[in-house]
Design a protein around this nucleic acid. Structure first.
Lengths: 227, 227
DNA sequence: GTCTATAACCTGATAGAC
DNA sequence: GTCTATCAGGTTATAGAC
């Protein structure tokens, strides 16, 4: 009884989605209202601290309807999580694997695009990095293949330019330069007199600084390390 | 009735702690067993996902005893949180404000000490940075004064060496270089073939790389930015 | 100080009316 | 599709025996 009911549900769902494409209805569907609220609450508070009631209230609907559409908190969460991971990594992947651009140009694109992305979605890094611990399988689903990153054009270009350097060290530094300030923001604001506008200004400056600094890093003399 | 009971409790507590210093009892107290368990569970799962039952079980005691000693989950959490923030920032503050060491030396000390600290306490950054959002007042309590950071010797030394650079940009970059790889570790492990030992090796190499790279950053030509 | 038992409340999910 | 009402189980905190 239970199973057949949810079979019906899924059939209906896909039918509904198809209908939306052809039906000229500008007001957003209930399903989308719930997803929109879920995006907000989940990314702000994380999975554990989120109450389904909060999502329902934020969506302007009642609790039962949430389960009607998404069956469970966990299922709704996974939909949002995958979506957000695509936001977070989707911007990176095409740049990393672009055969037509130089290494310097890639660094510029990444720092500029990443900082803009997170300025527009400040909760994104916390959400992705925080929930990644509990949902490694979801990350794997979004990452195309396990060897994509290390075989990307970007990594090859680093190896060519600075063969003695582990290219992963470089990529992590680049991402850290762009993302870490946002992760540290609450601490920063508590420990200095900095406020929101000053922080934003700092990040805009950073879009210029990061490429300059990473170029300098690529020019450093090889480090002899004692493996 | 309620208040007087807890007054007694606090009196007893401070007396108990005094006693511990003078009493040669090697077996740890129940209070310490609970705190030890709380450190573990809170830092691993964060406040929301932690169940007081888990702490009690991990401590080998029952739930009632936890409330007997610490009154509430929130109160116990705050004790652990302040303690962990002291771990996290306590290592930084004396180095930043040391009048006797050079800027380069400070950078070396910070990267080396920070990476070692987090290698020994992998959950620390997640815990601090994650919970900082919900408990900004606790950070403020640990940070001595709001102007300490910007007036520290470290910041003065940067201003001297590279006057056109916002010293905060530099400090954030330094911390990001050391801390961000740990924050990104779950993602990294899901997206590459890297495993725990390789990650550790990478972080050990980083202790050498970070000072070299930051020295290079300090030597870059001034960037003209369009404020 | 430590335990068991339980109160009081919260939370995710479902039943069933409309 | 959407609602109200409610269940079942979990969670923090307390009462009271020892």
């Amino acid at each position: 009884m239970f199973k057949s009911r949810w079979l019906l549900f899924f059939v209906f769902q896909s039918g509904h989605k198809m209908a939306k494409k052809t039906t000229p209805r500008p007001d957003i569907s209930t399903e989308e209202k719930i997803k929109e609220a879920a995006r907000k609450v989940f990314t702000q508070k994380g999975y554990s601290a989120t109450r389904t009631r909060d999502i329902a209230t934020a969506a302007g609907i009642n609790l039962a309807l949430l389960n009607y559409y998404f069956r469970s908190k966990q299922k709704l969460f996974e939909i949002i999580m995958v979506e957000k991971m695509q936001n977070f990594f989707g911007i990176l992947i095409p740049i990393l694997d672009d055969l037509t651009t130089s290494l310097d140009s890639k660094v510029e694109h990444i720092s500029s695009n990443y900082i803009d992305l997170i300025l527009a979605n400040p909760d994104l890094p916390f959400f992705i990095l925080g929930e990644a611990r509990n949902n490694p399988e979801l990350i794997f689903k979004v990452a195309q293949r396990k060897d994509f990153l290390m075989n990307s054009v970007f990594m090859k270009q680093i190896r060519e330019k600075k063969p003695e350097l582990d290219p992963l060290q470089f990529l992590i530094s680049l991402l850290g330069m762009c993302v870490f300030p946002f992760v540290m923001k609450p601490v920063l604001i508590s420990m200095t007199h900095m406020a929101e506008p000053a922080f934003k200004q700092m990040m805009l400056e950073r879009k210029i600084l990061v490429p300059v600094w990473l170029k300098a890093i690529l020019k450093t003399k090889p480090v002899i390390h004692s493996r």
